[in-house]
Design a binder for these strands. Sequence first.
DNA 1: ATCGACCATCGACGATAATCGATTATGGGA
DNA 2: TCCCATAATCGATTATCGTCGATGGTCGAT
Lengths: 110, 110
Amino acid sequence: MNIAAQNPIRPALPPGDADEYASWFRCLADGTRLLVLNAVASADRAMTVGEIVDCVGVGQSTVSHHLRVLAEECFVHMQADGTRTLVTVNADCLQALPEAAARIMGFDRS
Amino acid sequence: MNIAAQNPIRPALPPGDADEYASWFRCLADGTRLLVLNAVASADRAMTVGEIVDCVGVGQSTVSHHLRVLAEECFVHMQADGTRTLVTVNADCLQALPEAAARIMGFDRS
DNA sequence: ATCGACCATCGACGATAATCGATTATGGGA
DNA sequence: TCCCATAATCGATTATCGTCGATGGTCGAT
């Protein structure tokens, strides 16, 4: 018998929300990507892609790929500046992380 | 020239730590795994593997796999009870999440 | 002792993702 | 206009991961 499935006291996390959170966490689930994010976050200024490449120590195309992934989830903001691309972090995005954890743990403030 | 690499004002996140955090986030980077975690967290009691299977709606071996991954990162605790396995959550693990975010963003309290 | 319930493990498959090198596109300076 | 620097894109390769079905092992009940 499955008591929990029949008597869900707390509303279960909708599978759609779970996938949404998952893709969000997946963005942080790679060491290189965390190094990229940390480099930009620690710089206190906009960084170019080339600077990030030198900081992280992987190929330029790899950094470009990771920046695109981070930008798609709004962890960073990218703005073209002539031939360069200036990268800045979106601090709000990471600060929303505890809220996600709370929902997963069922600490909904309903 | 690479100013940031030569003048790292803030200490960069060590690559080893980045990988450590990454494997931590990777644990939460799958929708099914979040559903498993949410099911156990919302239950207010220990759950058996079979109950989780019924809640989440994937195969038994898949749930067993995800539970092992979650247990390796200490998100859940598993204890054999006869032929069953009782699963409980480790709330502390998810509450440490904001700290990880802070370090990635360079908000080290040195 | 046998049977059934429960769960872990194994092997396989498909999908996804990380990385690299090469190429291409674009803007700025000579 | 021509060249260089910068970065995005492409193609290929490799590794990792999620899922399933089947198998095996263990405990409890009959």
